[in-house]
C-alpha cells in the first residue's frame, strides 16, 4: 500500500482522493473477535451458505470446493454458524 495513514500534506492527492481501489484488504479486522468459527469438514456439504452470508467474505473457497474462514478478516459474528444447513460450524473461544 502506497498511501500512508499519517501522510504529510504534500503527499495527499487533490481532495484526499484514494487511488488504490479496495485497499482496505490491508486493514485486518480479525482481532475484533472473541469467538472464531471452526468448520468440521467431515460434516461440511460445501454449499457456500457460510460464504454468501458473511458480511466480510471471510470465507475463501479452496481447490476442493470447501470454504475456509480467513481469521485475518473474520470479526466473529457467528452468522455462518447459525446459518450452516449442515450444522458443521462451531464458534470457539479464541486461544490467547
Amino acid at each position: 500500500m502506497r498511501l500512508k495513514e499519517r501522510p504529510k500534506w504534500q503527499e495527499l492527492l487533490p481532495g484526499c482522493v484514494i487511488d488504490e481501489p479496495g485497499n482496505s484488504v490491508n486493514y485486518k479486522t480479525g482481532d475484533w473477535k472473541t469467538l472464531k468459527p471452526v468448520v468440521d469438514k467431515q460434516k461440511c456439504i460445501r454449499c457456500g451458505t457460510c460464504w454468501i452470508f458473511c458480511p466480510e467474505y471471510a470465507y475463501e473457497e479452496d481447490e476442493y470446493g470447501y470454504f475456509n474462514p480467513n481469521y485475518d478478516y473474520c470479526k466473529g459474528c457467528g452468522i455462518c454458524a447459525v446459518e450452516c444447513p449442515a450444522r458443521c460450524i462451531r464458534m470457539e473461544r479464541e486461544e490467547e
Binding site: 479496495g22 482496505s24 479486522t29 466480510e56
Partner: peptide
C-alpha cells in the same frame, strides 16, 4: 467481491 473486506462495519 467489489465491496472489499477490511471495512469497519459492526459484527453481523
Amino acid at each position: 467481491e467489489l465491496f472489499t473486506r477490511g471495512h469497519r462495519a459492526c459484527q453481523g
